[in-house]
Design a protein around this nucleic acid. Structure first.
Lengths: 277, 277
DNA sequence: AACGATTTGTTCGTATGTATC
DNA sequence: TGATACATACGAACAAATCGT
């Protein structure tokens, strides 16, 4: 009896949801009905619902009601190329991976521009802060919903050296890695990724249609690509909503992944967390 | 005047925090004082504070007050070994990496047991569900605070074949990768990592002392290691609180990382999110 | 197109509980 | 122990969104 009332109501509803008694997509009783059901005040019921919202179990729609959230099938992005393959070649893996999972990918036309380097860009590309760099921005959708935002930055010197298509707002179908090799003889020798989980900013919240309470975080990957001399030649910053994306990477000799539509997501309650057994 | 009052109060406080007018660690006015300050009710002020809490900007301490949160220096885990090195050898990289960044690492003694395989374990280790597997669980601390929980699972056949130390609750100092090579002649040829961001469960919330509102998510990595024949030999599930961990990976030929104590964390507001320029 | 019914969202006031110093 | 500060809970009123008539 230690737990506060709103908590007990929330736990009770959570049990009903996780047991399947309340199916995904189904509507909960209204706040007034729950008030009678639990003999609490409407505000207390609302506190319980807020608790469920923060945990991603339900969502409210003004004027309609409260609903059990549908679960989404996460999309997996593989961060490494084929292990035994020569380095590089991660250009057009996106559509490959997506179509392989029978889903419909789209990319917006690139949004190209020149902008001064912020601290992250300057540090990764090893240029001075405020130095102008080329930026190429794209949005990626799967099955019609927004999946990621991606911006690549290149040093300005590439354009001077002849890679003029970097500044054109058209897709470089063969991939910029191949384009830079053909146009400048620049070989991508490897890359370093940094993976960061953080709260979405306002743009991202709007763009991905995330709940505006900052509950869903985004995953930001920063890929710095290097040429053979170890000079950074590209920085690609990608932002993925954490509720519909997963990542994978292969190191060394790894067998092909077996397709199983499981081990996917939330009702996990397993694995490494058995601290208090 | 479109925004609700609690929102306007929250935004105002957010501005003060982000501009540095309210320094990290400093105390906000009390709810009663803020009520007078903004000429709202205490409940409305509390709604504003809740909004700031879910965004990780402030924290409340019962009996004390509301405080601007301190930012923590994230710890970076590199998921790949040295690129040009032969595969394998990721055994004791943990202490290496931590000490390299001048921080104090600790590992709890392993918590060893036998347990039936859950769906994830069964799928990754390619054993039947409910089959018994060996589990070795460890906690990792840095500078005295909890950084990660880790559990490795091995098929039972390894013990029968002679790797009996897997079942002893003592540290295998040379690393289990080396131990399995020495005792069974088993060579780890590669591994596959899956990276998932999800809400913490109750154990994890307690253990990492996370705010109990599920705002901070955890990063779960599942590493499946394979021998030369492509047979899975180990599954390691690690759970990291997302607010103090980052990940990195190197592919191909990559220069040594330059040490710069920047480009770290939250007040980012940069990069790929320029959707609405 | 307008209206009313329903449902969630916001705001207020108030009282009492619990944690900290 | 008392004072202070946040936490929980109740009741009430009106606003805003949605849907069917």
């Amino acid at each position: 009896m230690a737990d506060p009332m709103y908590r007990r109501i929330a736990e009770d509803l959570r049990r009903q949801i996780e047991s399947g008694k309340l199916a995904p997509g189904s509507q909960l009783l209204t706040e007034l009905e729950l008030r009678d059901e639990y003999e609490a005040s409407r505000n207390t019921v609302r506190d319980a619902i807020k608790w469920l919202i923060t945990r991603g179990l339900v969502e409210t729609r003004p004027g309609q009601g409260t609903f059990v959230r549908l679960l989404v099938i996460p999309f997996v992005t593989t961060l490494t190329g084929e292990p035994e393959t020569a380095s590089g070649g991660e250009g057009h893996t996106y559509t490959q991976e997506v179509t392989a999972t029978l889903r419909l990918p789209e990319s917006s036309p690139p949004d190209v521009g020149i902008r001064p380097a912020d601290p992250v860009m300057a540090s990764e590309l090893q240029v001075g802060e405020q130095t102008e760099v080329i930026s190429r921005h794209q949005q990626r959708l799967i099955d019609g919903t927004l999946w990621s935002l991606q911006t690549s930055y290149y040093p300005m010197r590439f354009v001077v050296q002849g890679a003029t298509r970097l500044l054109q707002a058209t897709d470089i179908v063969e991939g910029t890695v191949a384009y830079l090799r053909e146009s400048l003889g620049l070989e991508q020798a490897g890359y370093r990724d940094k993976i960061i989980v953080r709260a979405p900013d306002e743009n991202e919240t709007r763009f991905f249609k995330l709940p505006d309470d900052g509950r869903v975080s985004v995953i930001e990957t920063r890929r710095t690509a290097f040429d053979d001399s170890g000079t950074p030649m590209r920085l690609t910053v990608s932002v993925y909503p954490a509720d519909r994306n997963q990542f994978a990477l292969n190191v060394g000799k790894v067998p092909a992944e077996v397709m199983d539509p499981q081990s996917a997501d939330s009702p996990d309650e397993s694995a490494a967390s058995d601290t208090t057994k």
